[in-house]
């Protein structure tokens, strides 16, 4: 158990290290581009450029540059953005993280409950018109671009019908921290997270439906019915038990990539100051330190989430548990 955990942690650190080297190489060690000039931004004074060069060690060998960068990112956490008037980037990312986390948690709530309802309904009613309708809706949800949907939602709820009874409660675009007003927090996130969830509901419902139908053909389901279990029990208890492995792994990866900035478009459209929007701004202004910080932040999330999913997997399936830890 402990050995497995240790080796797992080691693997994670290794992956994160690999990603950091890769990102560093792409942004700072590409030949032909002077990172100093790019960090400093256009039109920076020679003094600033010289200071940056000294501070980041750009006049020293690459490994030293890399170490300097990592030190600034993780240890002294004083990596600063020059494009953005000397703003330290690490606090900026840490400030944005709760926003993204809130958004993604809400979205996950919607997409899990939505896809469970739709997926189970269309599996149980397979080949009926309900099933077909749900699956077509799912496909539509899957293919609507999220920024377009977001714009439409904004158009409808913020301006066109904002004064109707239905949408009067919709707050102006932006974020309200939970600590400030829990209710306001929920209101501010309701529509953005629902918008974000739409595509996932479609995808996850389809996955769940097909997994459930495969599971229903298993011998153990036949046994459950032979035991005298009713349909509700067979579908929800036995069927789900068999089919949620791939659902869970899919969920873990999507959840992680959204936390890492994958909700970029939603955040931009709804003006939520989250990690995605930060990344978007950094890319728009070519703010290298900020890019470095957000990408590393995303990488850490994806890797950690991956490990969590694996752990959850082992919890859900004793066969996997054994394969890893012996017994």
């Amino acid at each position: 158990m402990i050995r497995g955990f240790a080796s797992r942690t080691g693997q994670m650190l290794l992956v994160i290290f690999g990603i950091s080297v890769l990102v560093f190489a792409i942004f700072f060690a590409t030949p032909g581009a002077d990172p100093t000039a790019r960090i400093a931004g256009r039109g920076a004074s020679p003094q600033v450029v010289a200071r940056i060069r000294a501070e980041y060690g750009f006049d020293r060998p690459l490994p030293v540059q890399y170490l300097k960068m990592m030190e600034k990112l993780f240890i002294s956490r004083d990596l600063t953005s020059f494009v953005n008037h000397g703003q330290p980037v690490v606090p900026e990312v840490l400030q944005a993280a709760p926003v993204t986390l809130s958004l993604v948690l809400w979205a996950a709530f919607f997409w899990v409950s939505g896809s469970l309802v739709f997926g189970i309904a269309s599996a149980v009613l397979r080949d009926s018109w309900v099933d077909r309708l749900l699956m077509v809706l799912g496909l539509v949800g899957l293919s609507i671009p999220v920024f377009w949907l977001g714009e439409v939602v904004n158009l409808v709820t913020q301006s066109r019908w904002h004064d109707t009874l239905l949408f009067r409660w919709v707050p102006p675009l932006g974020y309200v921290p939970f600590s400030q007003s829990p209710f306001g927090w929920a209101k501010a996130l309701f529509l953005p997270s629902l918008t974000l969830a739409v595509a996932f509901i479609g995808l996850y419902a389809r996955v769940l439906r097909s997994e459930l139908l495969t599971a229903m053909g298993e011998d153990s389901i036949r046994t459950a019915r032979a035991k005298g279990a009713g349909p509700v029990r067979v579908w929800l208890w036995h069927g789900l038990r068999l089919s949620w492995l791939s659902y869970v792994s899919l969920f873990g990866l999507d959840f992680a990539q959204l936390l890492g900035g994958g909700a970029l478009l939603t955040e931009v459209v709804f003006a939520l100051p989250g990690v995605g929007r930060l990344t978007y701004q950094a890319l728009a202004t070519l703010d290298l330190p900020l890019i470095m910080a957000t990408v590393m932040y995303a990488a850490v999330f994806v890797v950690v989430a991956n490990a969590l999913v694996d752990g959850l997997y082992a919890l859900l399936d004793p066969r996997i548990r054994e394969g890893r830890h012996g017994g």
Binding site: D219, S220, T223, A226, K227, L242
Partner: peptide, 26 residues
């Protein structure tokens, strides 16, 4: 509903492959 009451109580069934006939995760 009535058949279900019989299944498992009045009559029971065992299958060829006990590996797949049990739910693997419980």
């Amino acid at each position: 509903r009535e058949w279900r009451r019989l299944r498992g109580a009045g009559m029971a069934m065992i299958f060829q492959d006990p590996m797949t006939a049990f739910l693997p995760v419980r």
